[in-house]
Simulated scan of single mutants.
Amino acid sequence: MSAERKATTVEHAKALRSVGEAEAGPAYGRHGLGKSFRFAAQGLAFALRTQRNLRIHFAAAGLVLFAAAALPVSRIESLLLLGAMVLVPLAELFNTAIEAVVDLAAPHFHPLAKTAKDVAAAAVLLASAFALGIGVLVFAEKLWPLQVREGAAGYAAAVAPLALALFWPFCRGLFRR
């Protein structure tokens, strides 16, 4: 288990143990709409604070929004991009929730706990692959026309920082020891 994963697991365990008896009593779950939104915001803040991949997904979504605003994108393409941008962080949040519950239920290694975590991570991988496919279908022709035309170097110069921003975290991981 990596040091980052151990730290996240320890923080999950501390956060889960910090729920007091008063909150976990018989009235647990009976609260107003405002508290529901506050709990959801706290959950999102916790996930953003502890989950590196969720922060990467949010950064990628920001880049997609920027590209969609800068390029001519139809309504249908916008809907597809929006769906993909919501699907990936949603899968990551479910993955985080599943990992927290598994850590609570099985604090020590167990093959079924590993399976649950691996399957949840696979769901995030599939959602990410789907989003990448949507992005390629929507943006490929707009960014890389099939015929080379005047100003193609400008496209390459504009796309290079975007590509670097998207792939830098993966490149860093490849060369890290």
Results as ranks from 00 to 15, higher is better:
residue 7 A to V: 10
residue 8 T to M: 09
residue 9 T to G: 10
residue 10 V to L: 12
residue 11 E to H: 04
residue 14 K to E: 08
residue 15 A to V: 05
residue 15 A to L: 02
residue 16 L to H: 06
residue 19 V to T: 05
residue 19 V to W: 11
residue 20 G to E: 06
residue 20 G to A: 01
residue 22 A to M: 07
residue 25 G to Y: 04
residue 26 P to H: 08
residue 31 H to P: 08
residue 33 L to T: 01
residue 33 L to E: 04
residue 33 L to G: 05
residue 35 K to G: 04
residue 38 R to M: 07
residue 40 A to M: 15
residue 40 A to N: 07
residue 41 A to P: 13
residue 43 G to W: 02
residue 44 L to G: 10
residue 51 Q to I: 10
residue 51 Q to S: 08
residue 51 Q to W: 05
residue 52 R to K: 02
residue 52 R to E: 07
residue 54 L to G: 07
residue 56 I to R: 03
residue 57 H to N: 05
residue 60 A to K: 03
residue 69 A to E: 00
residue 70 A to L: 09
residue 72 P to M: 10
residue 72 P to I: 09
residue 76 I to V: 02
residue 76 I to A: 03
residue 78 S to H: 05
residue 79 L to V: 00
residue 79 L to Q: 04
residue 79 L to Y: 05
residue 83 G to M: 05
residue 83 G to D: 02
residue 84 A to W: 04
residue 86 V to G: 02
residue 88 V to Y: 04
residue 89 P to S: 09
residue 90 L to N: 02
residue 94 F to H: 07
residue 95 N to Y: 15
residue 96 T to P: 00
residue 102 V to L: 14
residue 114 K to M: 11
residue 115 T to N: 14
residue 115 T to Q: 15
residue 117 K to R: 14
residue 118 D to G: 11
residue 119 V to L: 15
residue 120 A to C: 07
residue 125 L to I: 15
residue 126 L to P: 12
residue 131 A to E: 14
residue 133 G to I: 08
residue 133 G to Q: 14
residue 135 G to W: 05
residue 136 V to E: 10
residue 144 W to D: 07
residue 144 W to M: 15
residue 147 Q to N: 13
residue 150 E to C: 09
residue 151 G to C: 01
residue 154 G to W: 14
residue 162 L to P: 08
residue 166 L to A: 00
residue 169 P to M: 09
residue 172 R to M: 13
residue 174 L to A: 08
residue 177 R to P: 14
